[in-house]
Write a protein that binds this DNA or RNA. Structure first.
Lengths: 233, 233
DNA sequence: GCAGCAATTTGACGCAGGTCAATGTTGCGT
DNA sequence: ACGCAACATTGACCTGCGTCAAATTGCTGC
């Protein structure tokens, strides 16, 4: 019995495409790792030496500029794939937002294994296509939405995304805990921390949401929130 | 002799992974099309029924909001791949910016053919990974750069991108013709047309660039332009 | 329970870039 | 060559969001 047999994300991660003998081989190539909150797994500009599957926890992908401005370009959850296979450099830094567990592979080993297993590459392709759609969709938010629309879109996205926590699909949640602090929300939305804070207090004042504590959000009026994502007001 | 044998992008497109017998099969599935400037190939939200390779011309991928705000989320050139294989909907509209020629496939046919040809899928995966890196990098620009930085980054990117026109690599060009009007530049950068215009005239005034006509740009001081992409000034 | 620190909120203010409107320029069809 | 329509530039003004600074909240370890 290998570590894969008891893996929490066995069925959802790209490994799900493999038969047990091949999984056995892949298992030998991988190493399970614990990462503490705040720790980075790879850095923007470095050679891409590692790829990984997320087993548990939430991590961010970010790019930043010389003067410290940062943009979060992706958030990964359990069963998601991290890293840049097939050559080149890492284009973003990967950092744990919560304590996390990942299953890492030397990129060279993974590349070779993937080339020999078309089903695995196919799953990876599907995932990558989905991520690309998601990234492009987010570009609309970053380039064209105002602060209020950004916050509303963000809250609804989180409500949908965090619902998919395990095997059962709970549907969009009306109460959830964000894995982000205010600064990180700002870095996702291309805003400042102050603007995020002000928009949230305004939504509270309007009775659209509630924030029992810093990280949990309760959606009181989903319809109104949905209206806000598009033309404001 | 098939159309593929004389294809302008034969070696650079994903078809380049195929042997001639298989190319023959793929050729039978594809149809060559002419598209005039302004015409759209697929629409945001529609079922994804087509995929295509670009043979000639430039096309934009865009998303837009109810009130008309638009964001260009990608630009494709000859040899690039268009469309969303493997299920689902089109997440963006594809529109020709110049007269163009494409080689289209029914998505169902393409999906099946791709699944049977791992080398093709591999090329597609590589391309998709590169596009994802590009999209995420652009998110930094949209979320965190100011107008001047955006324009500078855009001009340098175009200078690099348009150089790769055919077989020979010319290196970054100091004189090139944009396939975009001002509104489209604005839609790429998340700005208004007026701001784009003002920034360009300012760069002219500073002697950094020159614009002999509406669509051609001459870079006079590349170093200074490069400095502007990061912390402004 | 309290000191101390980090995270968040709130307030006051300024400016980059959006909006609206007028003017200039270019290219196309007749 | 002319006139029109689309595109681009310029100007004046205004506002949403960033900036800076101070106050508040909440968490950690003792």
């Amino acid at each position: 019995m290998t570590a894969c047999d008891t893996c929490l994300v066995r069925n959802r991660a790209i490994c799900g495409s493999l038969e047990s003998e091949e999984l056995e081989v892949l298992n030998k190539l991988g190493r399970r790792h614990r990462i503490v909150r705040g720790q980075s797994l790879m850095w923007e500009g470095d050679d891409s030496l590692l790829v990984a599957n997320v087993i548990e926890g939430v991590l961010k992908l970010s790019t930043s500029m010389g003067d410290g401005r940062e943009q979060i370009v992706g958030v990964v959850y359990p069963s998601d794939f991290i890293g840049r296979p097939f050559g080149g450099k890492s284009f973003h830094t990967v950092t744990a937002l919560t304590d996390a567990r990942v299953c890492t592979f030397a990129r060279k080993d993974f590349d070779q294994f993937a080339r020999e297993h078309p089903d695995l590459e196919h799953k990876l392709l599907q995932r990558t296509l989905t991520e690309l759609d998601r990234a492009r969709h987010w570009m609309l938010l970053l380039g064209r939405k105002n602060a209020r629309e950004k916050i509303a879109t963000f809250l609804l996205e989180m409500s949908a995304r965090l619902a998919d926590g395990g095997c059962v699909d709970l549907g969009p949640l009306d109460r959830f805990e964000l894995p982000f602090g205010r600064q990180q929300i700002a870095d996702i939305l291309g805003l400042t921390i102050e603007t995020v804070s002000r928009q949230l207090t305004q939504l509270k004042a309007e009775g659209v949401i509630e924030t029992p504590d810093r990280r949990t959000v309760v959606i009181l009026d989903r319809d109104q929130l949905e209206e806000m994502t598009d033309s404001a007001e």
